[in-house]
Design a protein around this nucleic acid. Structure first.
Length: 280
DNA sequence: AATGTGACCTGGCTGC
DNA sequence: TGCAGCCAGGTCACAT
């Protein structure tokens, strides 16, 4: 389940492998994984990789020609998507099923997009600016850099609860069910608390916790539950630090109360009814 | 306009 | 052992 820390680890592991390389051949095994209105311009075939970027949970692969930016692709990993780099054209450590796109590089290396559940996808754009001005335009500030002032402004006069607000990528980009549950537990806020009940001090604290948690999760290589691996095939280690996510009906690590679940915005939320206050 | 809900998709788990 | 049914959740279309 890749959220921001996992996507950031994919980005950093991938950029070391592919920046500067030229794509010699692309195979699209499953065309419906290519989304969006514009059909791919050869999925970067013949292009040289300039940089690997990220915004929220989305990755971007930028290419260049004589120093200027050329076509780019945006990759969303969805729930089970993964990107894997193999130094040779073989697929030694990569599962062969559910590979939808394969890129081959000038050095003989291969790069795969695999996504069993196909919630992910790839979007192509003629320039990075097109990507920013269309697909990324509606996203809120990236969760790593969002400020208390930006979040306060986004939450002003809203009637929804804090859990669904933090899951909304238009308010803050990069958080998903796992990290939102962990952040709300750390802040001692019940997931159903209406955002209008939170004061400026609480929102500032929320933002500090978001930054700290994401920083620690990125440092730990992200979290692995079932599927996630970075581009080298390594698993994350942050899941061992979870306080609530995946611990329904177990004891709260702070107060020993049995953790409960509630469905918010169609997602299972685990929380401690003793530690987390429902402001009304 | 803002918010809520269900569909998409498939691997893994549980219960019979 | 094999099968059916349920659950997981990011995003989007549609309903309220």
């Amino acid at each position: 389940m890749p959220e921001l820390p996992e996507v950031e680890n994919v980005r950093t592991s991938l950029r070391r492998k592919i920046v500067g390389q030229k794509i010699t051949h692309v195979s699209v095994h499953r065309p419906d994984i290519i989304r969006g209105p514009s059909k791919p311009r050869n999925m970067l075939s013949g292009c040289q990789i300039k940089e690997v970027g990220r915004y929220g949970k989305q990755l971007a692969i930028y290419t260049e020609n004589n120093g200027s930016y050329e076509p780019c692709i945006c990759i969303h990993l969805g729930m089970t998507g993964s990107l894997r780099y193999e130094p040779t054209s073989g697929q030694s450590g990569t599962q062969l099923n559910h590979i939808h796109v394969t890129w081959r590089f000038s050095d003989g290396g291969t790069f795969f997009f695999r996504d069993p559940r196909r919630f992910g996808g790839i979007w192509t754009f003629p320039t990075p600016r097109q990507l920013r001005d269309t697909r990324w335009q509606h996203l809120g500030p990236d969760a790593v850099t969002i400020t208390a002032m930006q979040l306060t402004k986004s939450l002003r006069n809203r009637s929804r609860n804090i859990k669904s607000a933090l899951l909304d990528q238009g308010i803050v980009a990069g958080l998903g069910n796992i990290y939102v549950d962990e952040i709300l537990f750390q802040c001692k806020i019940h997931p159903l608390t209406p955002v209008k009940m939170l004061c400026c001090k609480q929102i500032s604290s929320l933002v500090r916790r978001i930054h700290r948690l994401l920083h620690n999760a990125i440092k730990a290589g992200g979290s692995t539950f079932k599927d996630y691996q970075n581009a080298n095939g390594n698993h994350g280690r942050f899941q061992s630090q979870f306080q609530v996510y995946g611990r329904s009906n177990q004891r709260c690590k702070q107060c020993e109360t049995t953790l409960q679940t509630v469905t918010v915005a169609g997602r299972t939320s685990v929380f401690c009814q003793c530690c987390q206050v429902l402001y009304k």
